[in-house]
Design a binder for these strands. Sequence first.
DNA 1: CATAAGTAGATACCGATACTATCTAATATT
DNA 2: AATATTAGATAGTATCGGTATCTACTTATG
Lengths: 209, 209
Amino acid sequence: MRIAELSRQAGVSIPTIKYYLREGLLPPGERTNRNQAQYDEPHLERLRLIRALIDVGKLPVATVREVLATLDEPDISLHKVLGTVSASLSEPTASTPDDDLVAAREDVDALIERHGWQIAEDTPELDVLAGIIVRARQLGHAHIADSFDTYCEAAESIADVDVGYVSGLGTVENVVEGVVVGTVLGDAALAAIRRLAHQNLSARRFAES
Amino acid sequence: MRIAELSRQAGVSIPTIKYYLREGLLPPGERTNRNQAQYDEPHLERLRLIRALIDVGKLPVATVREVLATLDEPDISLHKVLGTVSASLSEPTASTPDDDLVAAREDVDALIERHGWQIAEDTPELDVLAGIIVRARQLGHAHIADSFDTYCEAAESIADVDVGYVSGLGTVENVVEGVVVGTVLGDAALAAIRRLAHQNLSARRFAES
DNA sequence: CATAAGTAGATACCGATACTATCTAATATT
DNA sequence: AATATTAGATAGTATCGGTATCTACTTATG
């Protein structure tokens, strides 16, 4: 198909497609001439994936490029891609070593320990979580962190179905794509569902009709 | 305290504080003179809250303003503030009524029904979730939505501790602030914890040492 | 009390991000 | 032959989240 058709089917404007081509998010089409290229189904799928990562996951274009690069690596393992996707999705942690952060990080390590989780020391999420605890404390809501044990238990059942889902995808490429889609769409879905659960609970407990 | 001190304690530059004042995120200090104003503890707390919403929650400044406005309303109920905060946090849903979206929305309604949740028809998260399902289908990952029942169960226990936490906060103002902080920091924490759970599970199942 | 430092408020400017528009030279379609 | 479409290059634009500067003061300090 030509670029106009790709644009129509994906619902993405031609200038935007050209922009993604320039930015290396989308591989160039197969050239048939100096000013003609053919795009096919994989292009369309890739384009839809890009839009999902941007629209639903709110990923910046640069992060999308990183994630897609991981996805295109020839020898990928599920565990490795999880790490890379995680790393791309969490901001690089602040440079200041900060006493508060170190303390919070110890609490995070204890949390992980309590749940018997096997996590590499340098996983960025550990610092992200520590950072959140620091903020909560600064805001006078230190006890929010007390809920994190429950969050962990809940996350275990969630991770269970998540990994179950991707495991059933067959080829490595499919699994890896499933990880990306599942991570990003899953985050968004989980946030929405949590809000719905809040609404439900507060409707039941505190509704004044 | 004067603006320099406020800046120092919050770790936010003076021009940025002035910007927040202009944007109405931060109420003006108490004027003592034509070019002097006093800021106090509440200002500092508000400023820290603003930074947490922006840094951790990635909320745009305009949304922070909305959320803070809700927080400052004189007569607020927990249930109302949950709705307003939710509304501020989810983008306004697309205008196109779209067949795919309608179908997905029915699936969402069925999901809510299965769990016996009481949710107002017009809650924005219902459409957000439907939108995510549409994207998943377009990406050939329709079955991701099968996991949402598990997500709901997990979200129930999470919402339980969340509501338990804010209920214990005493005054209405504290509760409302707790909702805001808990929603935003909680989302970020939950996402991080989910990633950690993934890492743990994949380490155990698929690790090649 | 003079001089330096700090401040409010107004306005202008800035860098990053994510596109969008335009132009050229060529090819495709009708 | 006339019209539409395309690749690729380059330039322009809107928004966002600040920064910087300037003026007319007021405070703090030696």
